[in-house]
Design a protein around this nucleic acid. Structure first.
Lengths: 199, 199
DNA sequence: TTGCAAACTGTACACCGTCCAGTTAAATTG
DNA sequence: CAATTTAACTGGACGGTGTACAGTTTGCAA
């Protein structure tokens, strides 16, 4: 923990994983504003610059951490019996996970939902389910984005405001999310061919 | 423009409106990152502290400016013949205005869409139109929020990313917004009993 | 004419991300 | 084994940020 206990050249024995883990801890403990390169370095007992041996920039670090959050999302199997129920479950899980990290949500939005491995994986599952639900191929991409916008956007509205005040009760926002998801699914699947046998 | 040309006590003759106007100009010229208390003061030829005579904090200033942006939204009359078309027009105008201020969108999100006079006004019109479209009274609030989430969220996805790169072509995002809006309107106006969303 | 609130400056605090120039330990090579 | 390269790490700095405190001066009201 002492940063004065080591001179230049002396190693602290860090790994990239250490840095990312510490970043997540800091985030969980004090929210986004508790995560600065300096506070992170302080916690690792290291000079701020050291972090740049493991991470190109704070942006890259944030991207990594954000995608890690998406690992918590519980995705249904792509061949789950009822695709529409699967979509609903997937989006609801995404929304719930985001709710667990309120101040990350605006950061997510600013990055269009992150582009890491987990994001890609979830996106592919969603696409598959949409196709299986009979959504026209030309509509799949738009439907995916609309659903993601709804999940992240709803989560953003549930997050604490600038003054730490919470303008809407979380239960209300969740009800709104669920309702909106239902509406969207009605609209998206309206006039689509039945899932049938050939798919 | 010279900050050294005036000693303590000498007045610059500013008004609150001057400050807000300069803030909007700065924003229009260089985006959100060009608007700092210091750059604003520099432009007004004044010391940074001076601004705190007109504004409680940067947050308050931002709130004011954000609500001002919403004044650009073209809202239909509340008694327009076709309420559903009215909702569509209102949301599309909102979306378009937001697109014109890309880097403000994340700020909007972080503030749950601003709470100023213009936001309230638009919200009331939207509520009226929803009721006239036959939406159940108990659903009006949720429908309003879902629509707002969709508009702001879609705009956020169209905004430039962290590296200034634009991952999606604006035309595509607009198509996605329009499509999603259509789906939502179908769902919202499709009877008042809850649809089969398994969430 | 006096008094006072409001407008304004100087200075400072505590941060921020990140760059540059070292120093030293470990890994690699001969 | 010795020599050399590479990677981890520090000190210090640069140029920014929002904003608090204490002091000056101005214009207006009493």
């Amino acid at each position: 923990m002492r940063s004065t206990s080591r001179g230049p050249g002396q190693r602290a024995g860090l790994t990239r994983a250490d840095v990312l883990t510490a970043a997540r801890t800091l985030l969980a403990e004090g929210g986004i504003e508790a995560l600065s390169m300096r506070s992170l370095a302080r916690r690792l007992g290291v000079a701020p610059n050291t972090l740049y041996s493991y991470v190109r920039s704070k942006t890259e670090l944030l991207d990594e951490v954000l995608d890690g959050v998406l690992a918590e999302v519980h995705a249904p199997e792509a061949d789950t019996p009822d695709p529409v129920a699967g979509i609903s479950a997937l989006m609801t899980s995404t929304y719930t996970v985001l709710l667990g990290h309120p101040d990350l949500v605006p950061v997510f939005l600013a990055r269009q939902g992150a582009r890491g491995a987990n994001a890609v994986r979830l996106g592919e599952i969603l696409d598959t389910l949409l196709r299986r639900a009979g959504v026209d191929e030309s509509d799949v991409g738009q439907a995916r984005r609309v659903l993601i916008v709804h999940a992240i956007g709803s989560a953003a509205f549930a997050a604490v405001g600038p003054d730490g005040e919470r303008p809407l009760a979380p239960a209300d926002v969740t009800a709104q999310f669920t309702r909106g998801l239902g509406w969207l699914l009605v609209g998206i699947t309206a006039g689509s061919s039945p899932p049938g046998g050939a798919g």
